[in-house]
Structures are given as C-alpha cells and as structure tokens.
C-alpha cells in the first residue's frame, strides 16, 4: 500500500487553487490569439486583445484572472493501492481550498441557498472521486465561475430527434445565453449516460486542452460543425456582436438507456481554469 499524507494533499490543493485562478492556460492563450485573427468586429478584436492583456497582468502580478474565483470543483483519481494517512481525503481537500482561497486572496463566493449568507471560506467543495487501478494519485482543481455555470442546462431528449436534435439543443442554448456567460466561451457537451452522468461528462470535457478534438472522428466532426454554427450566431466577444462567440466545442459521450437521450451543455467562459498535479 502506498501512503500519501493528508497534509501533502492539502498543500497541493492550496497551490492548485492559486495557480488555476491566476495563470490562464497556454491552450486558452493560443485560442484567444487565433480568435483575434478571426474576429471581424473592431470592438470584438479589441475585447479579445484586452482579455490577453488581462491574462498577462494576472500572471505577472499574481492576481486573479477574474474576480469570480469560482466554486472549487475537484477531480480526484485515486489508485486502489493508495492510502491517505493523517486525516480523511475529503477533509484534506476541503482544508486545501480553505487555505488557497485565504492565502491566495481569492474571492469567497459560496453562500447558503436561502439566506444567501456567505460560508466565509469558499467551502464546501464539489469533489468527484474516481477509484482507478494501481497506486497513482492525480488531483485536478477546476474553479467554476457562476456567470457561465448559470447558462448551463441538462435535458432528456427523445431518441427520435437524433444527432440533429442534439445539435439544435446545443446551438439554442448558446444563442439564449447570449452575452451572459462572457463570450468567447468553451462549450462543454455531455451526451449519454443518465441525467447526472451527462452533466458530469459535459464538465469533464472542459478539462481537455481547448480545441483538442474528441478522438472519435464522428464526434470530432460534430464538434466542428457545432462550433461553426455557434460562430454564425453573431453574438461575438462579450455579446456585442462578432464572429468569435466560442473558442471550441468539446463533446464527451457514453452509451445511454434505450429509452433516453440525455444531453448536457456546460458553458465555460474564457477563464477555463484547471490545474492538476500527480502525487
């Protein structure tokens, strides 16, 4: 049995919270640079350039890319031969978020659903555990902002609508979201599984480097077609009109029930924050 201390996990999560919120991934930076070339609207081009400038300031001055430093979403892959010592895994992750959001001057954005009273330390944390073979331990921190999360939806389509029905749902969702999720966005799509699994697939698709296609050529073709249709909507950067509404569409798919066709759309703003570590 390989042992990993709870304190090591806490410190790792702390660092990942801070780096995810201040260092925009190189994949997003490249996608934004490409978007500047593609954009025809002068105002849109200017907004995209300012987002690049913003990322540079955040990285150099170590302040958050966006003031909404998100709900801390954590993905854990823990080998079945790994044992966490000196505390529980959940407590270790929660404490890491607490420390990261305090020491990193990150905004605490979590509140009670009715009273709206802030919990004060950005906890609880949404944790997705995956038990895998062997003795590896991989942890990903993916802070998710409220603006783009609010525009996300899950639906149970009728199987008869087919691929075209799925495409219509995704495009319609982006259209109705308009300027609200801070375009340019990355559109995460989960197809199949069950109601909750579709949402999780959509969220996991956002961890893929921006613009990397799904390895299945049929799905990659749908991603490409969807991106083209979305960018014809005219929403543009910040929803003020333009050609670049989304930087990428990522689809993850798994088989579904013979009666069902679950589809989830998880919209992500350009601050596609996720940082991972292996212990």
């Amino acid at each position: 049995m390989r042992e990993i201390s709870a304190e090591t996990i806490t410190e790792t999560v702390k660092k990942l919270c801070i780096s995810a919120n201040t260092e925009l991934g190189e994949d997003v930076v490249k996608a934004l640079e490409k978007a500047v070339e593609m954009e025809r609207s002068t105002a849109g081009k200017d907004i995209l350039k300012r987002l690049l400038e913003n990322a540079k300031i955040a990285r150099e001055e170590k302040i958050p890319i966006c003031q909404d430093t998100g709900y801390a979403v954590v993905f854990v892959e823990i080998g079945q031969n790994v044992r966490v010592v000196g505390g529980s895994l959940k407590d270790a992750i929660t404490e890491g978020v607490r420390r990261g959001y305090s020491e990193g001057y990150l905004r605490k954005s979590i509140c009670h659903c009715f009273s709206r009273e802030n919990t004060g330390d950005n906890t609880p944390v949404v944790i997705h555990y995956d038990i895998v073979p062997g003795d590896r331990f991989k942890i990903t921190v993916a802070p998710k902002g409220g603006g783009s999360e609010n525009m996300s939806r899950v639906t149970m389509l009728t199987p008869a609508v087919g691929v075209e029905g799925i495409k219509e749902f995704v495009v319609q969702r982006v259209k109705e979201s308009g300027p609200n999720p801070c375009p340019p966005t990355i559109v995460g799509v989960g197809i199949g599984g069950t109601f909750e699994q579709a949402a999780l697939l959509a969220k996991k698709s956002l961890l893929r480097p921006v613009g990397d296609p799904n390895p299945d050529p049929e799905i990659a073709g749908i991603e490409k077609d969807l991106l083209d249709r979305i960018n014809r909507l005219g929403i543009g950067p910040q929803g003020l009109g333009g050609y670049v509404t989304s930087l990428a569409v990522h689809i993850e798919m798994m088989p579904c029930h013979i009666a069902s066709l679950p589809v989830a759309v998880n919209i992500q703003c350009h601050a596609a924050r996720h940082k991972e570590a292996e212990l």
């Binding site: 300012r50 913003n54 990322a55 966006c66 603006g147 801070c182 910040q238 703003c269």
Partner: peptide, 10 residues
C-alpha cells in the same frame, strides 16, 4: 455601460 467580463485583473 458594459465593462469587459472576465477581465478582472485589467
């Protein structure tokens, strides 16, 4: 007025 969403550092 619209400000640039996601440009919090700037």
């Amino acid at each position: 007025f619209a400000a640039i969403g996601g440009a919090g550092a700037l």
